[in-house]
Amino acid sequence: RVIAMPSVRKYAREKGVDIRLVQGTGKNGRVLKEDIDAWLA
């Protein structure tokens, strides 16, 4: 299970990103909004 705040999950869904593919850089591997942006870049 991916650790991410609900707002980040929603952001990823809106961008069409599968959050399971994104490498989290936050505490304990948490996926941050910046990680979604970096994955899209």
Rank of each mutant, 00 (worst) to 15 (best):
Arg1Val: 13
Arg1Leu: 10
Arg1Asn: 14
Arg1Thr: 15
Arg1Trp: 03
Arg1Gln: 14
Val2Arg: 08
Val2Thr: 11
Val2Phe: 04
Val2Ile: 15
Ile3Val: 10
Ile3Gln: 07
Ile3Tyr: 03
Ala4Asn: 05
Ala4Thr: 08
Ala4His: 06
Ala4Lys: 04
Met5Leu: 14
Met5Gln: 13
Met5Asp: 11
Met5Glu: 15
Met5Ala: 15
Pro6Cys: 08
Pro6His: 10
Pro6Gln: 08
Pro6Asn: 13
Ser7Gly: 13
Ser7Pro: 07
Ser7Thr: 11
Ser7Lys: 12
Val8Pro: 02
Val8Ile: 09
Val8Glu: 08
Val8Asp: 04
Val8Lys: 01
Arg9Phe: 12
Arg9Ser: 06
Arg9Ile: 13
Arg9Gln: 10
Lys10His: 10
Lys10Asn: 08
Lys10Ser: 08
Lys10Arg: 15
Tyr11Gly: 04
Tyr11Cys: 05
Tyr11His: 11
Tyr11Leu: 05
Ala12Trp: 02
Ala12His: 01
Ala12Pro: 03
Arg13Ile: 13
Arg13Asn: 09
Arg13Lys: 11
Arg13Gly: 11
Glu14Arg: 12
Glu14Thr: 11
Glu14Asn: 11
Lys15Gln: 13
Lys15Asp: 01
Lys15Ser: 09
Lys15Trp: 10
Gly16Gln: 11
Gly16Val: 04
Gly16Thr: 04
Gly16Arg: 08
Gly16Ile: 03
Val17Pro: 00
Val17Leu: 06
Val17Gly: 01
Val17Trp: 01
Asp18His: 05
Asp18Val: 05
Ile19Asp: 01
Ile19Gln: 01
Ile19Leu: 08
Ile19Gly: 01
Ile19Met: 06
Ile19Asn: 00
Ile19Ser: 02
Arg20Val: 08
Arg20Tyr: 09
Arg20Thr: 14
Arg20Trp: 09
Arg20Leu: 09
Arg20Phe: 11
Arg20Pro: 02
Arg20Asn: 13
Arg20Ser: 14
Leu21Phe: 14
Leu21Glu: 09
Leu21Met: 13
Leu21Ile: 13
Val22Phe: 03
Val22Arg: 01
Val22Tyr: 01
Val22Thr: 03
Val22Ile: 10
Gln23Glu: 13
Gln23Ser: 13
Gln23Ile: 15
Gln23Asn: 13
Gln23Phe: 11
Gly24Tyr: 02
Gly24Phe: 02
Thr25Ser: 11
Thr25Met: 05
Thr25Gly: 05
Thr25Arg: 07
Thr25His: 07
Gly26Ser: 04
Gly26Met: 03
Gly26Asn: 03
Gly26Glu: 02
Lys27Glu: 11
Lys27Val: 14
Lys27Thr: 14
Lys27Leu: 14
Lys27Tyr: 12
Asn28Thr: 06
Asn28Lys: 10
Asn28Ser: 09
Gly29Lys: 08
Gly29Val: 02
Gly29Tyr: 05
Arg30Ala: 14
Arg30Gly: 08
Arg30Pro: 02
Arg30Ser: 11
Val31Asn: 00
Val31Met: 04
Val31Leu: 06
Val31Gly: 00
Leu32His: 08
Leu32Ala: 05
Leu32Arg: 13
Leu32Met: 10
Leu32Val: 10
Lys33Trp: 07
Lys33Ser: 07
Lys33Asp: 04
Lys33Asn: 06
Lys33Glu: 07
Lys33His: 12
Lys33Leu: 10
Lys33Ala: 07
Glu34Arg: 11
Glu34Ser: 13
Glu34Lys: 15
Glu34Asn: 09
Glu34Val: 09
Asp35Thr: 01
Asp35Pro: 00
Ile36Gly: 00
Ile36Val: 12
Ile36Asn: 00
Ile36Met: 01
Asp37Ala: 04
Asp37Gln: 05
Asp37Trp: 04
Asp37Ile: 06
Asp37Gly: 03
Ala38Asn: 15
Ala38Trp: 10
Ala38Ser: 14
Trp39Tyr: 15
Leu40Phe: 08
Leu40Met: 11
Leu40Lys: 06
Leu40Thr: 06
Ala41Glu: 15
Ala41Tyr: 11
Ala41Val: 15
Ala41Ile: 14
Ala41Gly: 11
